[in-house]
Structure formats: C-alpha cells, structure tokens
C-alpha cells in the first residue's frame, strides 16, 4: 500500500515483545511471530532456532494476501484468521490492526481453542501499540533522511 514507512522504535518494540511473551506462555505455544503484511518480521519469541524466520515472514504474508484475495472474490473483506494443522505442529495466523500478522506455532500441548482465545486477547493490546508506532512513524523519518549518496554508494564497494 502507499502507506508511509513504518518506523519501529525501542519502546514499541519492547511493548510488542512483552505482549508476545505473555501470549507464548498463556497459549502454551512454541513460537510466536509478529510480521508486517508486506512480509517483514517485526518480532519473535519462543524457540525460533531452526526456523527460517525471514522465509516464514514472507510466506505468512503471501498466505494472508492470497486468502484475502479469495475472500474478496466471495464479497468478504478478508479472512482474518487462518489455521494450518500439521502432524506435529500447527500454525495459527491472524490479522492485527489491518497491517500486521500474528503467527502462533503450537503443538499438542496446546489446542486451537486456547490459541484462538489468547490471540484474541493479545490482538487488542498489539493493535494499541501499533497505533502508537504508526503515529510515531508519521511524525518522523527515523534518521534515514541523513543518508547521503556516498553512504548509499558504500553499500556496493
């Protein structure tokens, strides 16, 4: 979308992490990720070792985008919750504040009902933090305005 750039600062990042940690514990999940709808990972908690988090973020965004396209075809705005069931692990994806995707990976120690309940509780808190992050992004450029042509050129040396 042509929305402005999203700048995530320390206080909002820490607030996201704290909500994700609580969700991880409350939902007895293995890993929880927060991804933006364009496929970038914002934060993760839990045992993410062994996960290719960059690919996961991109595919989660693609997944939500594709099912959103399907939703539009039947006159829905989007399908805000997706659930994928595996042999060992399951994945619950939900849209937060229209711009973020919350991904919860869990196994048989939890259940889809519990995850849905906890996700619903976490979503409102995440949305509130996101509103602050968006307001801060709109107000500032985050320091990148100081980039010079020489800085950019230095990437290619």
């Amino acid at each position: 979308m042509s929305q402005g750039n999203l700048i995530l600062r320390e206080p909002e990042y820490e607030a996201f992490l704290s909500i994700l940690r609580k969700l991880l514990a409350d939902a007895s999940a293995k890993v929880v990720f927060l991804v933006d709808k364009n496929g970038t990972l914002l934060a993760s908690v839990g045992d993410a070792v062994g996960f290719d988090t960059t690919s996961l973020a991109s595919l989660a965004a693609g997944n939500i985008a594709a099912t959103g396209g399907l939703a539009n075809l039947i006159g829905e705005k989007e399908f805000s919750i997706l659930f994928h069931e595996g042999e060992r692990d399951n994945m619950h994806l939900s849209v937060v504040a229209e711009r973020l995707i919350l991904v919860v990976v869990f196994d048989r120690r939890s259940s889809v009902g519990l995850v849905r309940l906890r996700v619903r509780q976490a979503t409102a808190r995440l949305a509130a933090v996101m509103a602050v992050a968006v307001a801060a992004s709109d107000a500032e450029q985050g320091g990148v305005e100081e980039l010079t042509e020489a800085d950019i050129e230095s990437l290619f040396k």
Binding site: N5, L8, E10, E14, L42, V144
Partner: peptide, 13 residues
C-alpha cells in the same frame, strides 16, 4: 512501504 526497525537498527525494503 519500507520498514525501519529502530530497535534492531534495520532498514527493510
């Protein structure tokens, strides 16, 4: 929409 993570000092495009 670029994403700038000021906390981990990352620019994502």
């Amino acid at each position: 929409m670029s994403f700038i993570n000021y906390s981990s000092r990352e620019i994502n495009c």
